[in-house]
Design a protein around this nucleic acid. Structure first.
Length: 439
RNA sequence: GGCCCUAUCGUCUAACGGUCAGGACACGGCCUUUUCAAGGCUGUAAUCCGGGUUCGAUUCCCGGUAGGGUCACCA
């Protein structure tokens, strides 16, 4: 009878939630769910100077946005558990597994002052642990020396705090980034010191920047917030992140979170780092945008609309926008470019009104105007219905290209029927008239 | 530099000794279409190098090389 799986997500609130951390959270979540276990969310805020409330809030908010949940009703903070660490610290010192050492602070504000740091008495053991992703990893801990585990008896440092927390919270699996590998031997040593069982480790490959270095702030957008603000959908981010370093073993690409909780398998996690590729994220995002209900899409695009575009116009354009964008922040440029016809037609070369070599454009425009004038219900369906027979008769390109070009003034644009409906009957006829006059 | 990790198309990856080395993104072509986008078809493109083991290595072993991570009174 194996005991319940408990994983954890322990960020330190010293910045906005990093995309790599979000993936780590996701994998912990998926592993816990897959094994019908739990995931604990806690804040590692032993660095009081750098830990900020706003970052805590950001992390909670981002995880919720992504749909990743945790199983502890209140999120623990290490800052509120100092009595616990003190207890273990005292025990360690009493057992002579650690000792207090008077030392001068070398850097920072307190440089030069003396401090009673607590050092772990390193038994210089060889540590071998089995990583679920990488297999056996061996370390000689001798070179670690008697490392410091607390600033003083009241003020624990990271390594001590994590080990105590993982023990007290009954963590069975530690799934974390690759960069945690070298911390593992220290932590195992402390575990042995306090008599804690050794959890199972799984070190995830890092998410890399295009230059193959660890993805960090200097590489541009790296926080979940950045992507949310650019108009990426949580489903797309989850899907992309899940497939970065993991594969389902099939050729399926689209996965909803719920599906991932069933399919996820730690043994299919990659060993080597993966470069974060925005192009592929864009592709996923476009896919998820396509799947959105029109009303939901309209709602979602609201925050991204430029102030000078009337709401009603934007709503009319929503279907077109939905087809074109990969992420919502592209909306303003789309409205300024390809969809700018809604406001006005820029001056154009009249020769471009002709479809290929055909020179009867003036006649065609005349007839199109006649046809459209007779339509009362000016919808794209009705317009198409009315124009289509004529287009079939004279050749679709001959009719539809001049019509479209006269209405948009651009080589690339949506089809003429939609444009006509959006700008309305009066404006449509006006634009066709001026094309007719021009040519 | 010490220690540790890693190595398949440009990128994400499949292949757990025998495959024409498969898929996806990106890129090119074609088709469909009034243009664009979407869609369909299709093309270019990879096993880091050198030794073993084996009838046979992308796959197993060793050594190089390259890249990365980590070496705080940060987490």
């Amino acid at each position: 009878m194996s005991k319940e799986v408990i994983t954890r997500f322990p960020p330190s609130p010293t910045g906005f939630l990093h995309i790599g951390r979000a993936r780590t959270a996701l994998f912990n979540y998926l592993f816990a769910k897959k094994n019908e276990g739990k995931m604990i969310f806690r804040f590692e805020d032993t660095d009081k100077a750098r830990s900020k409330k706003e970052f805590e809030e950001n992390m909670v908010e981002c995880l919720k946005w992504l749909g990743i949940s945790w199983d502890n009703p209140t999120i623990e903070r290490q800052g509120e558990r100092t009595d616990l660490y003190k207890k273990y610290l005292k025990k360690l010192v009493d057992d002579d597994k650690a000792y207090i050492s008077k030392e001068k602070v070398e850097e920072g504000e307190k440089a030069g002052q003396e401090n009673d740091v607590v050092r772990f008495r390193n038994p210089n053991a060889k540590i071998i642990f089995t990583d679920l992703i990488r297999g056996e990893i061996a370390f000689d801990t001798e070179e670690l020396g008697d490392f410091i585990i607390a600033r003083n008896m009241d003020d624990p440092l990271y390594h001590l705090a994590v080990v105590v927390d993982d023990f007290e919270m009954g963590i069975t699996h530690i799934i974390r980034g690759d960069d945690g590998i070298s911390n593992t031997p220290r932590q195992i040593l402390i575990q042995q010191g306090i008599g804690a069982p050794q959890p199972i480790y799984a070190h995830l490959p890092l998410i890399l920047a295009p230059d193959k270095s660890k993805l960090s702030g200097r590489h541009g957008a790296v926080s979940v917030t950045d992507y949310r603000d650019m108009g990426y959908l949580p489903e797309a981010l989850i899907n992309y992140l899940a497939l970065l370093g993991w594969n389902p073993g099939t050729e399926q690409e689209i996965f909803l979170l719920e599906e991932l909780t069933r399919e996820f398998d730690l043994s299919k996690v990659q060993k080597s780092g993966a470069i974060f590729n925005i192009e592929k994220l864009n592709w996923f995002n476009k896919k998820y945008i396509e799947m959105m209900e029109p009303e939901k899409f309209q709602e979602a695009m609201k925050p991204f609309l430029p102030a000078d575009v009337p709401y009603v116009t934007a709503m009319k354009l929503s279907q077109l926008i939905k087809e074109k964008i990969s992420f919502f922040a592209q909306i303003p440029e789309l409205l300024k470019g390809e969809l700018s016809f809604v406001n006005s037609v820029q001056p154009y070369d009249k020769e471009k009104l002709n479809w290929k070599e055909d020179k009867n454009t003036k006649e065609y425009l005349k007839q199109i105007i006649n046809i459209l004038s007779g339509i009362d219900e000016f919808t794209k369906e009705k317009i198409k219905e009315a124009v289509w027979p004529y287009a079939e008769e004279k050749g679709r390109g001959n009719i539809l290209w001049p019509m479209r070009f006269a209405l948009s003034g651009m080589e690339k644009s949506p089809d003429p029927f939609i444009i006509a409906e959006i700008i309305g009957k009066d404006e449509t006829l006006k634009r066709l008239d001026s094309a007719y006059e021009a040519i």
